[in-house]
């Protein structure tokens, strides 16, 4: 037992009550409007300058994709061989390429193919990946084993290598497929090799969510497994899926350009940045007239960068844990 006479500095001290008024425990602050998770994420996104930079760039890119006619009157397929490889001028800002096409016009019209491939692939991959991943993670057991192993097999095949094999086969059986056929073929091939990544992300998120107590609580009120999956598990697993989807959009655009560059992506009849970069190859070797390469490549880089920046900002908003300090 301690000495009952207190030492200096340890005498009984009672703070005046007015200094620290006692608050009722369990009061609710109702001054601010209610905030759900999405609203909070939007608030965070709004305060991030990276988001605004990418948003402005993407808005411009989308206008170019939807209304290329607003930016140029020149037909991208109208060749003026006499002006082949002419450099940039006041009338033709980006100059002419080897075929005598106007480079500016080709850059503007080429945006559509790249962005369409990127977005469609992302949609395919997200839907397939989210569904397979959620089912695998939620039902577990043999369903999980089956889906996961199939995903592993596809994951093990390098994207570009697999795409080359698939597309060259496709070219033999379906060579004349036009604009949308060409785009669709590239989208499908990229999606075939892209979905396992999303499956893994979704499966991981679902595994984490399904062990939480509110899932048990929902079962205890009599909710069926399937309604649990749709109402609670999937909505709560969306954040990492959305983040991965935005970041990978840029990757798919690059992949399309790579395939087109290799000559097996979009058919040459389609105006696309990848095809134009491929056509500029010879100029790279000679080292002259680099504007033919520079402008489509620059447009590609800016577009990919915008999507990547958006992905970064979305990740910061949705998944504060992954934020770099």
């Amino acid at each position: 037992m301690p000495d009952m006479t207190p030492l200096p500095g340890q005498t009984i001290y009672v703070a005046p009550t007015d200094g620290t008024p006692l608050e009722e425990t369990g009061t609710v602050d109702t001054s601010a409007p209610p905030e759900g998770q999405w609203k909070e994420a939007w608030k965070q996104l709004r305060s991030n300058w990276i988001f605004w930079v990418s948003a402005v760039l993407l808005v411009i890119i989308f206008i170019v994709v939807l209304f290329p006619g607003l930016f140029t009157d020149i037909n991208p397929r109208q060749a003026q061989l006499s002006r082949s490889l002419e450099g940039p001028s006041a009338d033709h800002w980006f100059g002419f390429d080897r075929q005598g096409y106007d480079v500016f016009s080709r850059v503007v019209y080429g945006a559509r193919a790249s962005v369409t491939v990127g977005i469609l692939t992302m949609l395919f991959v997200t839907v397939v990946g989210l569904l397979t991943g959620a089912v695998a993670g939620f039902y577990g057991k043999w369903v999980d084993t089956a889906i996961s192993r199939v995903a592993d097999i596809f994951f093990a095949i390098p994207l570009i290598l697999g795409a080359i094999v698939l597309l060259s086969t496709l070219n033999n059986v379906w060579s004349n497929r036009g604009y949308w056929g060409g785009v669709l073929a590239v989208v499908l091939v990229l999606a075939v090799f892209g979905w396992p990544q999303m499956t893994r992300i979704a499966r991981g998120a679902v595994l984490e969510i399904k062990s939480l107590e509110f899932i048990d609580a929902a079962r205890a009120i009599g909710a069926t497994k399937r309604s649990n999956l749709w109402r609670h598990v999937i909505p709560n697993s969306l954040a990492p899926v959305i983040v991965t989807a935005t970041v990978s959009l840029g990757v798919y655009i690059v992949a399309e350009a790579t395939l087109s560059f290799l000559g097996i992506g979009l058919p040459p009849s389609v105006v696309s940045w990848g095809n134009d970069i491929a056509a500029a190859q010879s100029q790279v070797r000679s080292g002259n007239n680099l504007h033919v390469l520079f402008f489509p490549a620059g447009a590609l880089a800016i577009t990919v960068l915008s999507f990547m920046l958006l992905g970064d900002a979305v990740r910061d908003a949705l998944d504060p844990k992954a934020k770099k300090s």
Binding site: I12, Y13, V14, A15, T20, L22
Partner: peptide, 22 residues
């Protein structure tokens, strides 16, 4: 309580005869 010391003293004394409402 709320970042402030509201009461201090010998343990048993506080326990038996707490002064501050908190």
């Amino acid at each position: 309580y709320k970042g402030q010391v509201v009461e201090s003293g010998p343990a048993l004394q506080i326990l038996k005869n707490p002064q501050h409402p908190y």
